[in-house]
Design a protein around this nucleic acid. Structure first.
Lengths: 352, 352
DNA sequence: CTGAAAGCGCTTACAG
DNA sequence: CTGAAAGCGCTTACAG
């Protein structure tokens, strides 16, 4: 690397002190600097192609403008079609406010402060973003150091962190409303991971809506459980369920991957989607529109989720926000090809 | 943030000088330090929960251990199902070698050194990773500063950068071999973006293989052009092509998204895949296995792509690699449900 | 309106 | 084997 000019070089060239250079380059308010001097300094900096050394500035300011994001090794959130967009939103927001996002991978076990990621302890991170899962002990330790935390779509709940999530409950309601308007009366929810707040809320939103309409007056909401929130999980649950309850006409899957699996299962059992079975998913991941048929689902602005979280975190860092706000971003029904008016002849058996 | 202990506190507590603390904590070789002193220092650091301040160390060492990755605003590489894994691999490799990856978004126009991203100029980035596309003028400027560059799957080619790509040519060959073994004789390539080296190589690998077998002796390789490498692009190209050449039995799409679009088009035209039409894609993105039928495709280890690139970059930074190496990672055929033995009755019309 | 100087918390020749 | 001291390149009271 060629020898980079320092603030001293600029000062010499402009014929002023380094302090003055620092003031004009940082637009220090309160320091009234003459227009002429200002111009001279700027010209000199320009000509020398001067760029301040960030490390030195960080040290002197005792601020790094670094923010960390915690990822879990096993989950590869970064290549997850939902969370990668969330991360993208958070990253963009950070960059726009001149912060840098440092990524950190966490081990699944946490045994105390010594396990805190180096990013947080050494790099003087000013705030931490968590996605999806929270490790309470770690949260407590980070919080104790005085570093603010914001979590996105997380569980378990924690009073120590600010949070941003989507309106899962409302999403469930929207799904229910949609299927109801299409005349469905044999509705089931396919879900897994109900310990996660966001997932449970989706399922509850759905059945609460049906309750409200008296649809569930004399019965319980049928729930087909899956042991994972994946394509395979949805496939297995739907296969088993449809064989047992062939009269089902509408399926609400708590995420799109499961919905994709359910559609595959339905096809293999000879159900036509949507003619014979309507399916609605949740998340509106990229794949949704490429499924056959394209999936009706509940959409969320994933970038916004990330942006809002980062924004709240930076506000906390800069002291212009109270700690621990709970934000919620809206959700909307995206109607595509996997749902349709319920067919009149209520076939009790699959058509196949 | 609570007042953090400094190296001075550790020195005081251990009864040694700060120099000694620095030496033992950094395991400085060449500095023979007594076991007893070493222990005392370590104990003191432990007890104080001392963590060195990274900014100060960077400043003193004139090294940041920061590496940048350049992303383009319009492309959202981070939520692309292919590149997000590549990024993940690069990130993990960096972290494992104790570097930090700084993300930077680039504007599409570059007009000179002033447009160099702040991450590179201010943060003292020690190396830069490019993905997919290269802006030659920017590459030249970064290179001129003496900062090494490595690019992944990039175009246009550049003598200034190290590179890692997958063996696209071999991938094309594998696709051809596979379809040939299944007895296909009406083969077409669906491609777009042939200005990209990697894409062109895929198509060439495919037709070269056919040439070699004499398959193309008396004809040219049919190519259905698409104006984008997307689902929609593949859909449009296949729709048009299949209507014009209904006898086609095998399709090689230069990426999976196009293949997904082609399958959709085929279905809508009444072609059964794979009974009537075999389709092979390229990349093996997540979606591939969830398509109906699951897609036969050419797989690449995307994480490895990222890891190797980062590894090469760090080697260059640390001076243990020559500049500008060209690496290539292997590729393999992943057979799933979208390809089958060519059917005997050579229907000239779609079955629908 | 501007400058001299201390200080941020490390590293690293250098001297002993 | 260990310490005193200069230096990395900034920022920021403080004094004028």
């Amino acid at each position: 690397m060629a020898k980079r000019p320092t603030i001293k070089d600029v000062a010499t060239k402009a014929g002023v002190s380094v302090a003055t250079v620092s003031f004009v380059l940082n637009n220090a308010s309160g320091q009234p600097i003459g227009k002429a001097v200002r111009d001279r300094v700027q010209k000199a900096a320009q000509r020398l192609n001067y760029q301040p050394n960030a490390s030195a500035a960080h040290l002197a300011r005792r601020r790094t403008r670094h923010v960390a994001i915690a990822l879990y090794e096993e989950e590869s959130l970064l290549s997850n079609s939902f969370y990668s967009r969330v991360v993208e939103g958070a990253l963009k927001q950070a960059l726009e406010r001149d912060y840098h996002l440092l990524f950190s991978y966490l081990k699944s076990d946490y045994r105390g402060r010594n396990d805190l990621p180096a990013v947080i302890t050494q790099r003087n991170t000013e705030g931490v973003l968590f996605i999806k899962r929270l490790v309470p002990a770690m949260v407590a330790d980070i919080s104790a150091i005085g570093v603010p935390i914001v979590a996105i779509d997380h569980y378990p709940p924690s009073p120590l962190v600010g949070s941003v999530s989507m309106d899962n409950r409302r999403g469930g309601e929207l799904a229910a409303e949609h299927l109801r308007e299409l005349g469905h009366e044999q509705l089931v929810v396919i879900a897994g991971g109900l310990d996660r707040t966001s997932i449970a809320d989706r399922a509850h939103g759905f059945s609460d809506a049906l309750h409200r309409w008296g649809y569930l007056r004399n019965r319980r909401q049928p729930l087909w459980k899956s042991n994972s929130l994946t394509f395979e999980g949805g496939y297995a649950a739907a296969t088993k369920g449809l064989q047992k309850y062939p009269g089902t006409t509408g399926l609400f899957c708590v995420n799109d991957e499961m919905a994709a699996g359910a559609i595959r299962a339905a096809h293999e059992l000879g159900y036509k989607v949507p003619q014979r079975l309507s399916v609605v998913g949740f998340d509106d991941i990229d794949m949704a529109k490429y499924l056959d048929p394209p999936l009706t689902t509940i959409g969320v602005d994933k970038l916004e989720l990330g942006r809002r979280a980062m924004s709240q975190l930076l506000d906390q860092i800069e002291g212009r926000a109270a700690r621990v706000i709970e934000e919620r971003v809206g959700v909307q029904l995206v109607v595509r090809g996997s749902t349709a008016q319920v067919s009149k002849r209520k076939a009790k058996q699959p058509i196949a």
